[in-house]
């Protein structure tokens, strides 16, 4: 009640918007839901622009203060500005935009993923050296079974692993754990969402 008195408008807007969408879900009010969601998508897109502007402003501040890391901020602002101007004026489908995506974004993303191949091996080895309990052993054993069964090893298929053990492990054993985790995540999402819709949580500055 105290926080409602402090910022009644924000809380009312959050509750009205949230319950409107939730009731439209329950009572199948598709036209209303589409209309409100259409507006909110536009506001969210503007929010994304605002976030990028804020990122640029933060790095511009770092650049002006001339700290040791100013060069990084300079590179970030320049690359952001050039990409934004090219993609926004020519469109994402234009050759120049595709060039940026194919020759900068894609190689860097793929390279970061590739570096993970090395770091993951170190992480697994460190896990076993620091914590040798049943669960760490289960983790490594089933990771090895899944990897060994995913293809021929030096041109040789390990009997039963690829065609029997791996499918059973991935679909039944790991499937069961994944289902538990997913159901837990969805219950957590529902609880968090309801806390916002009941104004118990107010993560919007109220």
């Amino acid at each position: 009640m105290k926080s409602f008195m402090k910022s009644p408008v924000s809380i009312s807007v959050a509750l009205a918007g949230g319950w409107l969408i939730l009731l439209a879900y329950i009572f199948d009010l598709d036209a209303l839901r589409t209309q409100v969601l259409g507006w909110v998508v536009l506001v969210a897109a503007a929010g994304l622009l605002l976030g990028v502007l804020n990122l640029a402003a933060v790095h511009f501040g770092k650049l002006r203060s001339g700290t040791r890391n100013a060069l990084y901020s300079f590179l970030l602002i320049i690359s952001m500005f050039i990409t934004f101007v090219v993609v926004a004026t020519l469109g994402p489908g234009h050759e120049a935009s595709q060039w940026i995506f194919t020759n900068i974004q894609l190689p860097v993303e793929a390279s970061l993923m590739a570096v993970m191949a090395v770091t993951l091996v170190f992480a697994a080895a460190r896990l076993l050296s620091r914590r040798t309990d049943l669960f760490a052993i289960l983790f490594v054993v089933f990771a090895v079974i899944t990897l060994a069964g995913s293809g021929p090893l030096l041109g040789f298929n390990i009997p039963l692993v690829g065609d029997v053990l791996r499918p059973w492990v991935t679909q039944v054993l790991a499937g069961a754990g994944a289902r538990g985790i997913l159901i837990g995540v969805s219950l957590g999402t529902i609880a968090t969402g309801l806390r916002v819709l009941l104004a118990a949580d107010k993560p919007y500055g109220a």
């Binding site: 408008v9 807007v13 409107l20 969210a44 969402g193 309801l194 916002v196 819709l197």
Partner: peptide
């Protein structure tokens, strides 16, 4: 608040 409220409802 509008983004958070609608986002929470869509998430639920």
């Amino acid at each position: 608040a509008l983004l958070v409220g609608v986002g929470a409802a869509v998430a639920v």
